[in-house]
Design a protein around this nucleic acid. Sequence first.
DNA 1: GCGGAAGTTTGCGCTCGCGCAAACTGCCCG
DNA 2: CGGGCAGTTTGCGCGAGCGCAAACTTCCGC
Lengths: 234, 234
Amino acid sequence: MATVDPSLVTDLPMFTGLAGEDLAEILREARSARYPRNSDVFSQGEDAHSFFLLLSGHVRASKTTPAGEQVVMRYVAPGEIFGVAPAMGLKRYPATATAADDSVVLIWPSAAWPRLVTKFPALATNTLQAVGSRLQESFTRVVEMSTEQVEQRVAHTLVRLARQSGRRVERGVEIDFPISRQDIAQMTGTTLHTVSRILSGWEQAGLIESGRQRIVLREPDRIVALAEQAPGEV
Amino acid sequence: MATVDPSLVTDLPMFTGLAGEDLAEILREARSARYPRNSDVFSQGEDAHSFFLLLSGHVRASKTTPAGEQVVMRYVAPGEIFGVAPAMGLKRYPATATAADDSVVLIWPSAAWPRLVTKFPALATNTLQAVGSRLQESFTRVVEMSTEQVEQRVAHTLVRLARQSGRRVERGVEIDFPISRQDIAQMTGTTLHTVSRILSGWEQAGLIESGRQRIVLREPDRIVALAEQAPGEV
DNA sequence: GCGGAAGTTTGCGCTCGCGCAAACTGCCCG
DNA sequence: CGGGCAGTTTGCGCGAGCGCAAACTTCCGC
């Protein structure tokens, strides 16, 4: 397996303050792998043997409750690290990571973490920032779940997905990976039925255009408005 | 202002791997302050000038939505760090920290962080673990909000508070700081009315004993059972 | 010891969104 | 090209819990 070309990753936030030979040394410890759509990168509860960086594609992180229900925690976009359980002191992965689309990832063995972080303290700082911004996202989600109605939550979720992984398309912004009503339901704490009803409504109103696992925001601004307006205020 | 006695804090997770002169040096950069009950340590949106460690008392971290609603993110227990926005690369505090009870905190100026973390990389690692475990808690909360009914969420919340800040008392476990129905409502995404109804029910059933800003779990095991059982299963 | 403020309890009606059920449609695979 | 499956749409009825309103209780300051 060939070594990873540093030029692919130099500009990522994860490697801020690292370059040249340092970066090359870090990359030498990694291998890359391809995951076809719908395959698992790792599973909840599994021994946290590695940590990852997504090069291309999209990865869905989801948690399963004791009762067997699934909740989607986030979608990982290219350039982001994920499965950093070892750095947070966890022995097992707290969630399952599934390729939402064909994906290529870099993989470091967890055992390399202590050594790398000792030699390159910038890694700890950068990881801390990455984890910190995830904590903010998670807080935002708790706040939304606590205070917003379902329709508003769905709007917020679509806006976030579009910002993070939107692709400009003829008339609007398309979410750049296959995503089902069920997935959105599991991100917003509702049922696929309710999501379907809401999206149908928006499609009628010309706000979006959608199909099987595909959503195009035709009028992003009006979706943003839905996301931000107070519940009663129409 | 006297220097902080290292013996007070040596055993905290935050200072794992640090001792003697190193620890003393870190503490020399801090000052301590006392916050009376209901006073704010810092406010959401304020410039993140400092980061903190709680020595005694309890601090409530809450976020206010644009619409003016409050959501309680967590209660900080003694020994924990909080307000670590600077370490996560934030310029402003994302939440408001209020003393839930008379509290004593250590305060470091944010400006000291880069220097300290460079000189003592263990700080970054320890902070990463602290932030990581908060991320896990936050995820747990998202999952609960997504899949559980209100009664179950309240049960989970009380169990968590009792584990984190419970005090063994004559018959049961008392939550060790003043907490209102309103606070619990803001932690569980419901209204104080609903919380009041639920707690009244539990009090009738002998599961708890409660008063003004005071809750004693009489039968912790049965509350745990409520928290864990599937909604339908009675 | 009194008055008021803060916190808590309780009632009632209504609505959002779930649960259940069934039909529909685009896609993949044989 | 046809069968079947995965994903989606839609209808209908019901119930958890919210919104509003009002009474009650405990605590604190004066």
